[in-house]
Amino acid sequence: MSTQRMTLAPSRRSPVSILLAAFSITVLAILFAPIVVIVVVSFSPGDIMEFPPQGFSLRWYEAYVSNPMWMTATRISFLVATLTAILSLVLGFMVSVALVRSSFPGKNAVRIFLMSPLIIPKIIIAVGLYFLYVRMRILGTTFGLVAAHTLIAMPYVVMIISAALYSFDRRLEWAARGLGASPLSALRHVTFPMLRPAIISAALFAFIASFDDIILSLFLTKLTAPTLPRQIWVNVQQIIDPTIAAVSTLMTLISVLGLWLVALIQKLSSRG
């Protein structure tokens, strides 16, 4: 493949290809630069943001750790994201099995319905749930936010698990059943282990979808019990304080860690 590509580029050093490379590298650099800026600023020692900073300090990380408000927000974010991952995985796994392994009228409509929270503007979902939660008196509860985040995580989970189930060789399950395994033990000893990479990826996607969400948190959390993005939002509107940069750096780190884990799992499972 690579040799084909080599011969294909007619003249590697033609002005057009140099221009294309220069343009692309610039764009990629600009895509990455703001993240670098945030990381660098988060280590600045001064009270105001300077770039490049005059030295190195962890004072904004200390400010973050020693502030109970930030700590509360962090705890809530992790709790909500974890619960979201669990709930969306349970619901998503079951519905994926139903979608992949049976046929019934309106299956395609069900699939589109399942995917639609991904496409409909999130603000509409947020407003709808806000109305609902106010009437149900569950506005600002952890459960309410977990349910909302599960809704936006479900499309990812269903996508990943369905794809894995489609490529899953069901004869392995049948073989286990033929050898005397009960449906549940076939599921436990054959299906789950083989789907483990997809399940872990789906859980990570759901976790990050919840952890990074701002718009649902903005409508559905209380000011006294915010998520991390909500707490960032509150602070951003008041003062530009490098603490936000420190928190942002940590949030980015968690997202990148999630991405790296998914990539690692894919690599390992494609090898094995």
């Binding site: 703001p34 993240i35 800026v37 945030i38 990050i208 952890f211 990074d212 701002i214 993005p229 960032i232 939002w233 951003v236 936000i244 942002s248 949030m251 980015t252 997202s255 990148v256 999630g258 991405l259």
Partner: peptide, 10 residues
Amino acid sequence: WSSGLVRTYA
């Protein structure tokens, strides 16, 4: 993969 809020804040 990074949070949209973080990237806008940048």
